[in-house]
Design a protein around this nucleic acid. Structure first.
Lengths: 342, 342
DNA sequence: GTCGATTATGAAATCGATTTCATGATTAGA
DNA sequence: TCTAATCATGAAATCGATTTCATAATCGAC
């Protein structure tokens, strides 16, 4: 037999006080005398009472929830980030909602609507393809201050963004290859228009220039962060007359695809071609060969995004300024070596 | 200047009707005459009004949200499943909350509390380690009918569970290896006590027996679905006097770790040892060598879990019976071949 | 012993929706 | 034309919390 959950009125009755007093015990116990406080606490214990969130949220005009907008939940890259975000909110009583912008055809208008619905208090956006109008809509409803970008961001917009030091990562990769003796370095990019693509590619180009290395146009191969695009890039590279001796990939998955493709064509990694990735996903230490890559601390990034958002929601002491990029690290493994004949 | 969001009272005023009528237009338009209906609709359009969820949920005594309990959000294995779940709820107006049971130290009691809080209407549980008492608590608050298990489950409990045909997967793997000529087949298991571990191991053992294959005890190597455990298993295998010619791994990640370890020890895959995985994650087609594995349609499983839960929440026509396991498929790639000397 | 300050408590309003019940207007049937 | 059914609408109660404002009780100071 299931009885309805106890309400604050029930507790008041059991404890012999008014609902007002019960509420005070819940939110500001100092206002209540020790005797009554204990009586109320006891009543709460014995009934297993819990505050009804809908009622509290309605009265307090808030949602007690945040939304995470993920471009494609299916991509393993996001799992570590989600873990970090989840961890960041675990100690608060915020609920964490998740939406896949790929699955949800209306995600664009959805964001502002979620604020308006009173469904969420804030949002962590991992998708750099959000339209400016969708963001304007959020600003219009007064939610502009409660949006934080993570990993990706939108050029020209002024939201806080937690991101890795993408440029430094690209530089580290190129310098590592250069130090090994490589002079012919190619790059498989991310998708066009993506801010990460740009950041990594531009830094890579700049560093290659700085080192006075050759820069034929076809050494910049368009990819999209997917393993398939890496595989496709392999065919392009094999077909080149002037073949690079090393390839910096915009993501580990791309590197794996590339290595698979090159291996199929009879090239050996790293003896014939060196490959560097970006991300350091779980697998990267155990691929064959183990992948040299740029580590992004994804969990840390998620955690920081959570902190920054909490800060903006007024839940956190203002310690988290968070505008400096999260440091990256070069992890040298077995997929890079001096070029052939060096 | 940010004005407060419009309420149903505002709409009523603008349209010159009572809030009652506005509410009816929203939820049961047939009750309202065409003229007023249009007037109300117009008022809603022009103000950008949206229903306040907290108010509606309070009145309707529901949460309009479901919780997904994930053992470890950081594991890429779950990303596809989450995508499926998210997709399954995308067309409804349920919010999808996600909690990582690893991060959240109190997840055990949390589940029932979330129901009691009125925070969720239902839950999808991916963690087979939930305590019986936690589940009993849910049943006590009348939520027992609104919990669905996915992938894992809890032995002896009677909740609906969406799962792959794990036993069939194990059989397919063993039969494939047997057909290639392998007679010495080892297995790296999942973690102790896990229902998936048991299902796969027992089916593997039964099939091996059925085929009259040898079964030395040390060919069953304890793992935990992680890449590290696969790597560790490699050392064990290399050290064996009577070495198997093929290994069936309880997860693709385990297989990758195993391949990495065996390769380091100078063994060639598949020439010296064949390896079969389980899951068919995104990478598996592009590892070196490409992994022969058992495909689980993770997105499909998530989608089905969502449907079954929606059904139980009374949102869906009762079409989704969902007790038959989701089919698995053998994907033959390059990591398996006839045994040496065959 | 009296007065102002402090402390402890409760009655009632409020948040924004939904729904019951009542009422007036309209239509159909005889 | 009169009655009964149907239709369209609104007033007010309700969901379960929080908070303002008022009041009663206690305290310390003079």
């Amino acid at each position: 037999m299931i009885q309805k959950p106890a309400t604050i009125q029930d507790i008041a009755r059991v404890a012999g006080v008014s609902p007002t007093t019960v509420s005070r015990v819940l939110t500001n116990p100092a206002l209540v005398s020790e005797r009554t406080r204990e009586a109320v606490r006891h009543a709460i214990q014995s009934t297993g009472y819990r505050v009804n969130q809908a009622a509290r949220n309605l009265r307090l005009q808030r949602a007690n929830a945040v939304l995470v907008l993920v471009p494609n939940l299916g991509k393993p890259f996001y799992s570590g980030i989600l873990a970090g975000i989840s961890e960041g909110f675990a100690e608060t009583d915020f609920s964490v909602l998740i939406t896949d912008t790929e699955t949800n055809p209306f995600h664009d208008s959805t964001l502002a609507e979620n604020f308006l619905d009173g469904r969420i208090d804030g949002a962590v956006v991992l998708d750099g393809r959000l339209s400016a109008s969708a963001l304007d809509a959020c600003t219009d409803v007064g939610a502009g201050e409660r949006i934080v970008f993570l990993c990706e961001w939108i050029a020209g917009q002024d939201f806080p963004v937690i991101t890795s030091d993408n440029a430094e990562g690209a530089r580290l990769a190129i310098r590592h290859l250069h130090a090994l003796g490589h002079r012919k370095i190619a790059h498989v990019t991310g998708p066009d228009g993506n801010v990460l693509t740009t950041a990594r590619r531009e830094a890579m180009l700049a560093e290659r220039d700085r080192l006075d290395l050759p820069a034929p146009a076809d050494w910049i191969i368009r990819g999209d962060f997917s393993v398939e695009s890496g595989y496709a890039a392999a065919a392009r590279i094999v077909a080149m007359d002037n073949r690079p001796t090393a390839v910096f990939c915009s993501a580990d998955m791309v590197a794996f695809g590339l290595i698979a493709g090159l291996t199929e064509e009879g090239l050996r990694i790293p003896e014939d071609i060196s490959v560097v990735g970006f991300d350091d996903i779980e697998m990267s230490g155990y691929s064959v060969p183990a992948l040299t890559t740029i580590r992004q601390d994804r969990q840390q990034m998620g955690l920081r995004a959570a902190k920054v958002l909490l800060d903006r929601l007024g839940q956190k002491d203002r310690d988290e300024t968070a505008e400096t990029p999260v440091p990256v690290e070069l992890i040298v493994r077995a997929s890079t070596a001096p070029p052939p004949g060096a």
